[in-house]
């Protein structure tokens, strides 16, 4: 199992990283790391956009879904039909569920593995034949930071980026409106706590690890922040997730 994981997932990403390293005029594994991160993100961007949009749509049709449930309480067949018609009307793809999302986990783990494995001579020997094997890997990022060793400054930068990104996803709900619904309250308390807990945890995790992981994490977070900002800008205002509850309170959904 771990062989399959190594051969089909870790190795391709490792080779791609070294290929980028070779192509760069200025051989720097740090820059190669950033470029690889951005490339992967770019490939998955369409899925991110679609998924985010779907989530907003799904939230928007919740009240209508509840209406259907009440109306066809005794006829399950009709309920399913009405539900499907509603999905179709709002262009919600009902097939994107949690199962679909699990496919990304092996890829995330593989890329992490590449950076954790490092660039020893033994690892470089396992490169594909058509990738030029570098004599030595320059692991000093921008001539400043040795990425094979832990680095507190990079860890701090990552923690700060994590703080910004956690703050961005915090729901801007009126405190009053949340207070009425214990379910919403639970989710929002969680996200509020995470604004401070996430950066601290990031720091604790990164301090003992080679700083190439901090660099990879930073690059990932920067891209996420950018995506988040882009999605807020590009998904039209009329799609804005504002739902009026039966009791008239506003619920803003992220």
């Amino acid at each position: 199992m771990s062989d399959i994981f190594n051969i089909y997932l870790v190795q391709p990403f490792f080779n791609l990283l070294i290929y980028i390293y070779n192509v760069l005029p200025w051989h720097d594994i740090g820059l190669a790391t950033i470029i690889l991160t951005f490339l992967i993100r770019l490939v998955f961007y369409p899925l991110f956009h679609k998924s985010s949009k779907q989530q907003i749509l799904m939230n928007r049709i919740q009240p209508e879904l509840q209406k259907i449930q009440k109306e066809y309480k005794d006829d399950k067949e009709k309920q399913v039909k009405a539900q499907m018609a509603l999905y179709k009307k709002h262009k919600v793809n009902p097939f994107g569920g949690c199962l679909f999302a699990i496919i990304q986990l092996p890829i995330i783990l593989a890329v992490y593995r590449v950076f954790l494995n490092g660039f020893s001579a033994e690892k470089l020997n396992s490169l594909y034949s058509f990738i030029t094997k570098p004599e030595i890997i320059n692991s000093v990022f921008l001539g400043l930071i040795d990425l094979t060793k832990p680095n507190i400054v990079l860890a701090l930068i990552t923690a700060y980026l994590q703080f910004i990104s956690s703050k961005m996803i915090m729901p801007k709900t009126e405190p009053k409106a949340i207070g009425e619904d214990p379910k919403m309250k639970m989710a929002s308390t969680m996200q509020k706590q995470m604004v401070y807990i996430a950066p601290v945890m990031t720091l604790v995790i990164l301090i003992p690890l080679p700083s190439i992981l901090a660099l990879y994490w930073s690059a990932t977070t920067i891209f996420s922040i950018f995506q988040q900002w882009l999605i807020k800008k590009t998904i039209k205002v009329e799609d804005a997730p504002k739902i009026i509850d039966q009791d008239g309170t506003n619920k803003t959904i992220n």
Binding site: F48, G96, A101, M201, T221
Partner: peptide, 12 residues
């Protein structure tokens, strides 16, 4: 904490 490593969010 590892939320940003996901390429796209899991829909609910």
């Amino acid at each position: 904490v590892f939320r940003n490593f996901y390429f796209f969010p899991i829909q609910c």
